[in-house]
């Protein structure tokens, strides 16, 4: 990827981190950790990889993105707003009564959301159904599904993994936000996931491991997915929960807690400092 393109994506990522902090502070609740860890994934998809049109959210030829880890919706809302699906100002209504930005995604309310998610473990099956439908119709649309690593505790993920491999859904790309933390602590302490790549391989998937905060690596990984045939692909994106905000990085306590106004102001300053560097 060209240096200019990388800088563009990184600048957008920073803006989205700012949105996440300010919208969560306004809401007074929500999930910063797993939103911040997925920023570069979302930015790569919506600003480089996916075929989509913010002016026409119902465009039939669009690629689809399913947020299986529905609690990370702040990063999706911020990305959709930055992409132009709805006004950026609306981000401040997150979780408020009557808002289109529900605590977990409601596809009926907000343009750009493909599915209502939040009950973990369901997204990969939804994405598989879409991918299967596109295959049946001979269409070239691709489907991307972002899962949390803690979410992989859910058995349904592995049902879907078997189904997608069985039907050779090479138009389906799973992404695991491998930040290593879930509510009760490190994923290895809660329930061991490793050897994770081997598990996916054994289920019949192409596995691509990347630094989930490196937009160049991510975009390259999505390119490899597009060139893999007869198998679905999963990108295991190694990330840091709370990435970009020093006080939140690798802290399970910031899974589902919003920063207060003072801390939020401090974090925004910290992020601005990062921008100046």
């Amino acid at each position: 990827m060209e240096e200019k393109a990388r800088q563009r994506l990184e600048a957008i990522a920073l803006t989205i981190r700012r949105h996440i902090i300010s919208m969560l502070a306004a809401a007074g609740s929500g999930h910063p950790g797993g939103s911040l860890s997925a920023v570069e994934i979302l930015v790569s998809l919506y600003f480089e990889v996916m075929r989509h049109d913010p002016g026409n959210p119902a465009w039939e030829e669009r690629d689809r993105f399913i947020l299986s880890k529905g609690h990370a919706c702040p990063v999706v809302y911020a990305t959709l707003a930055e992409a132009g699906y709805f006004p950026v100002e609306e981000l401040q209504t997150l979780r408020a009564f009557g808002s289109r930005l529900q605590g977990h995604p409601d596809r009926k309310k907000l343009p750009g959301l493909e599915a209502s998610t939040g009950s973990l473990g369901q997204g990969l099956s939804i994405a598989s159904g879409m991918a299967l439908g596109f295959k049946m119709d001979g269409k070239s649309n691709r489907v991307y599904c972002l899962m949390g690593d803690g979410e992989l505790d859910e058995g349904q993920i592995w049902e879907a993994a078997m189904t997608a491999a069985h039907y050779k859904l090479d138009n389906l790309c799973g992404i695991v936000d491998r930040n290593g933390l879930q509510i009760d602590g490190w994923t290895c302490d809660v329930k061991s996931l490793e050897p994770l790549a081997d598990k996916w391989r054994a289920f019949g998937w192409n596995v691509i491991e990347v630094d989930g905060h490196n937009v160049c690596d991510l975009v390259r990984a999505f390119g490899r997915f597009r060139h893999s045939h007869f198998k679905p692909a999963v990108i295991i994106a190694h990330t840091v929960k709370g990435k970009g905000v020093k006080s939140m990085e690798n802290e399970a306590g910031w899974h589902g807690k919003a920063p207060g106004p003072d801390l939020a102001a401090q974090i925004l300053e910290e992020l601005d400092g990062g921008e100046r560097r």
Binding site: A115, G129, Q156
Partner: peptide, 26 residues
């Protein structure tokens, strides 16, 4: 046969596969 989808013994997956299929017009 081209419109029948066998999901194996996986009812939760089946329900959400159906959800995905409905989202692309089936």
């Amino acid at each position: 046969p081209e419109r029948f989808i066998q999901t194996g013994i996986a009812e939760q997956d089946m329900m959400n596969l159906a959800a995905g299929l409905s989202l692309v017009g089936k």
